[in-house]
Amino acid sequence: MTSNLVALAFDAHEPRELARFWAGLLGRETVDDPDGVFVLLPTRETEFRLEFAHSDEPKRQPNRMHLDLTSTSDDDQQAIVERALSLGARHIDVGQRPEEGHVVLADLEANEFCVIEPGNNFLTDTGVIGALASDGTPAVGYFWSEALAWPLVRDQAEETAIQSPQGGTKISWGGPPVAAKLGKNRLHLDIAPPAGADQHAEVERLVALGATRIDIGQGDVSWVVMADPDGNEFCVLTPR
């Protein structure tokens, strides 16, 4: 039994507005969740949701994870950038070199993301969201490969990446050094065991792989909050 990736969850000061930004950029629809989370619906069964929940916590440092969006041509890359800017994004400098082909932007709440140049071999055949690109050690890549049963598609020079056997978005980690965390990550993964499975047993399996249970003040909720080997928070939802 392994869990499935259900969602990438954003903490947001204005979750509805941030959801509208990403819906407009990705060409998806939003729905209002009964818990007050605004969800972008996937367009394919192999995709995960984007979810946005209210948080008053300030953004203290660059996110450990960001989205890499793909493009099919120079004109398409420029169109994606222009659409993002029209929705409220802005250009930012994170130390990228002039010769690099990707464009680095920030959304309405300063979450970094990249629009990748066409012809990027690593993101070939991945979809609109080519990668969830992360800071992280090799250990965390190995952990998530086991946690999701996604094979490694990169494991060299301390860089790792995994991808579902069905294809789609990759999750990648750039290797050490990994900056110390200043509070809870603003982006985290939500995973869930399949219908009929046991949530407690899945939590224990993840602990055996190197995760830890943590308390971030979640109170009495149906999901279990955990941290991966690099200390990144994630949630194990009820089976579905």
Rank of each mutant, 00 (worst) to 15 (best):
M1A: 09
M1W: 01
S3T: 13
N4R: 15
L5A: 10
V6P: 02
V6L: 11
E14G: 10
L18G: 03
L18R: 05
R20S: 12
F21K: 12
F21E: 10
W22S: 12
R28C: 02
D33V: 09
P42Y: 09
R44T: 09
E45I: 12
T46P: 03
F48T: 12
R49L: 09
E51T: 09
F52E: 03
F52A: 07
S55V: 12
S55N: 12
K59M: 13
R60P: 08
Q61G: 09
R64H: 15
T70F: 03
S71K: 04
T72I: 05
T72P: 07
T72G: 06
Q77V: 10
Q78H: 11
I80K: 12
I80W: 10
I80G: 02
V81D: 04
E82L: 05
R83P: 01
S86G: 06
L87D: 04
A89N: 01
R90Q: 15
R90N: 15
G95C: 05
R97W: 00
H102I: 07
H102V: 13
V104M: 14
L105W: 06
D107Q: 00
L108W: 05
A110S: 07
E112P: 03
F113T: 00
C114V: 01
V115L: 04
V115N: 04
G119P: 14
L123D: 00
L123T: 02
V128D: 03
V128R: 04
I129C: 01
A131G: 07
L132F: 08
A133Q: 10
A133K: 10
S134W: 07
S134C: 08
D135A: 15
V140A: 00
G141A: 07
Y142N: 11
W144H: 08
A147H: 03
A149E: 14
V153T: 07
V153H: 04
Q156M: 03
A157R: 06
A157Y: 07
S164T: 00
S164H: 05
G167F: 02
G167D: 01
G168C: 01
K170V: 11
K170Q: 14
K170M: 12
K170P: 04
I171Q: 05
S172G: 06
G174W: 09
G174K: 01
P176E: 14
P176V: 11
P177C: 12
V178M: 15
V178T: 15
A179H: 06
A180Q: 15
A180V: 04
L182A: 11
L182P: 05
N185Y: 02
R186A: 02
I191A: 00
P193E: 00
P194C: 05
V203M: 07
V203N: 10
A208Y: 12
G210V: 02
R213E: 15
R213P: 13
I214R: 12
G217D: 12
V221H: 05
S222D: 10
V224Q: 06
V225L: 02
D228N: 03
D228F: 02
N232C: 00
F234A: 08
V236E: 11
